[in-house]
Amino acid sequence: MANINSSSENPKVDLQYRRKKNAEDMKKQVVSFVLMIFLTLIAFAAVGFEELSFGHFVVPFIVVLAAIQVVFQLYYFMHMSHKGHEQPTLFLFSGVLVALLTVAAMMTLVWW
């Protein structure tokens, strides 16, 4: 009864599979975390170098880095990469699309 969703009748095989899967997930999370720290350091470096501040380069660059970090956090730390999370992912990205369209529409109304 405890192994209703198991792929085999041998609980030892399932335990080994789960351990392997958990190790892979942990490796992906550590790599994602290191990449996010690296992106944060790049953002700090972009703000720290006065040579890069010409032509309003820093603000859009930091916004792009922040968007990349949000995707990393949603995909790996919120477990959106796992099976069975397709519906919440669809709703989340649909909400992001609606928010972006709303901001674009309001900016268009203000500028015209």
Rank of each mutant, 00 (worst) to 15 (best):
M1K: 06
M1T: 09
M1Q: 08
A2T: 15
N3W: 15
I4W: 15
I4Y: 15
S6D: 15
S8F: 05
E9V: 11
N10T: 09
N10Q: 12
P11D: 01
P11L: 00
K12A: 12
K12H: 13
D14N: 14
L15I: 13
Q16R: 11
Q16V: 05
Y17D: 13
R19V: 12
R19H: 13
R19I: 13
R19T: 11
K20W: 14
K21W: 09
K21Y: 10
N22S: 08
N22D: 10
E24Q: 14
E24L: 14
E24C: 11
M26K: 14
M26T: 11
K27L: 10
V31K: 15
V34C: 08
I37W: 07
F38I: 05
T40N: 13
L41W: 07
A43D: 01
A45I: 02
V47S: 04
G48F: 03
G48A: 06
E50L: 11
E50F: 11
E51R: 15
E51V: 09
F54T: 04
F54H: 09
F54A: 03
F54R: 14
H56P: 08
F57G: 02
F57A: 01
V58A: 01
V59N: 10
P60A: 00
P60W: 00
F61N: 03
F61V: 02
I62G: 00
I62M: 06
V63D: 05
L65R: 01
V71S: 01
F72Y: 03
Q73F: 14
Q73L: 12
L74T: 07
L74M: 09
L74P: 04
Y75S: 02
Y76L: 06
F77R: 00
H79S: 13
M80A: 11
S81N: 13
S81R: 14
H82I: 06
H82C: 08
H82D: 12
G84I: 03
H85P: 00
H85T: 00
H85I: 03
H85G: 03
E86T: 05
E86P: 02
T89E: 11
L90K: 09
L90F: 09
L90T: 04
F91Q: 02
F91M: 00
F91N: 02
F91W: 06
L92N: 01
F93H: 07
S94R: 02
S94P: 00
S94C: 02
L97I: 05
L97F: 08
V98W: 06
V98M: 06
A99C: 08
A99K: 07
L100E: 04
L100H: 08
L100C: 10
L101T: 09
T102Q: 06
T102H: 07
T102L: 11
V103N: 05
V103T: 08
A104T: 07
A105K: 03
A105Q: 03
M106F: 10
T108S: 12
L109W: 11
L109R: 13
V110L: 12
W112Y: 13
